[in-house]
């Protein structure tokens, strides 16, 4: 009976230990991944188009690190989740702005081509 109680206690301790160790580890891994992602985005095209979004993600990641240091695993994971979606948003905004610029350029090109075509028609190709 005593052995059974010890066994149950051991299993409980292991379960609690695993639970408490898993979350911070997951958060730490994700923080590392996000740090690398931010570093990559900060030097690329995304930084040109959505610098403020990347900066916001950087701030949120700082908050995640601070929460992990306390430690507050729940808050750390929330901040990681937020930083992740902020980076997604930075990429999406950058892609949107880039596509909008491309669209403007292409429209301008089309207008020029149409003007050239009209001129050809008016001058009879001379």
């Amino acid at each position: 009976m005593k052995a059974l109680l010890y066994g149950i206690a051991f299993v409980l301790v292991c379960a609690v230990g695993t639970a408490s160790a898993n979350d911070p580890k997951t958060a730490a891994d994700r923080i590392q991944t996000l740090s690398e992602r931010i570093a990559k985005l900060s030097s690329g095209k995304v930084a040109d188009y959505a610098k403020d979004k990347v900066a916001s993600a950087q701030v949120t990641l700082g908050a995640a690190k601070a929460a992990q240091a306390v430690p507050n695993a729940v808050l750390a994971l929330q901040k990681v989740e937020l930083a992740h979606i902020q980076l997604d948003q930075a990429e999406a905004v950058a892609a949107e702005k880039e596509s909008a610029e491309n669209l403007l350029l292409r429209r301008s090109e089309l207008r020029k081509a149409e003007a050239q075509f009209d001129q050809y028609l008016q001058t009879g190709g001379k």
Binding site: I85, A92, E96, S99
Partner: peptide, 29 residues
């Protein structure tokens, strides 16, 4: 954040569609 993300991606989708249409017109002209 997810809603903003969706708006951005939808805007990009619209831009891409319009870009394809403009490209087609441009090729014709």
């Amino acid at each position: 954040m997810a809603a903003l993300l969706a708006a951005s991606r939808a805007a990009k989708g619209r831009n891409d569609e319009e870009l394809a249409a403009v490209d087609k017109q441009l090729a014709t002209v």
